[in-house]
Computed example of a mutant assay.
Amino acid sequence: MSSDTKIILRQIGAKIAYYRTLVGLSQTELADKMHTTQSTISKVESGNYNDNLSVVMLKDIADALEMDVSLLLEFNGFEKAMWDKKIGE
């Protein structure tokens, strides 16, 4: 897997953790809403979920957080600039 893909998966995971915290859910509570495990949520949030993250899982997470899935996939200029810096290192 390319380094830019790893960075994107980590950024998506960070957004999930941010929004999960914002709505006041623990990893376990989010996992329960999705009928999965806390370990799975932890791996997703760290960007290490089987080096892959399906659209279906993203949709399930967004639904459990009662948000639009597009918020997890949109990145502003600052976030993209950080990727360029990390990839260039």
Rank of each mutant, 00 (worst) to 15 (best):
G88F: 04
D68I: 00
G77C: 05
E66C: 06
K43S: 12
I41S: 09
V56L: 07
K86L: 12
L53T: 12
K80T: 13
M57L: 13
T36R: 06
K86C: 05
M82C: 07
S54R: 09
L73C: 09
T36W: 02
L65Y: 04
S70G: 05
M82V: 10
K80V: 13
L72F: 10
L72M: 08
S70L: 13
L71G: 04
S54F: 11
T40S: 07
S70K: 13
K43Q: 15
K59Q: 08
N50Y: 11
L65M: 09
F78G: 03
F75N: 12
K86D: 15
Y49W: 04
Q38P: 00
V56Q: 12
I61A: 07
A64C: 07
L73A: 08
E74M: 05
Q38V: 03
E79N: 12
S42L: 02
I41M: 07
G88M: 10
A62F: 02
I87C: 05
N48E: 15
K86N: 10
I87T: 13
I61H: 04
M82Q: 14
S39Q: 14
Q38F: 01
N52S: 15
A64I: 03
D60Y: 04
D68P: 01
E74K: 05
T40Y: 04
A81K: 10
D51C: 02
Q38E: 14
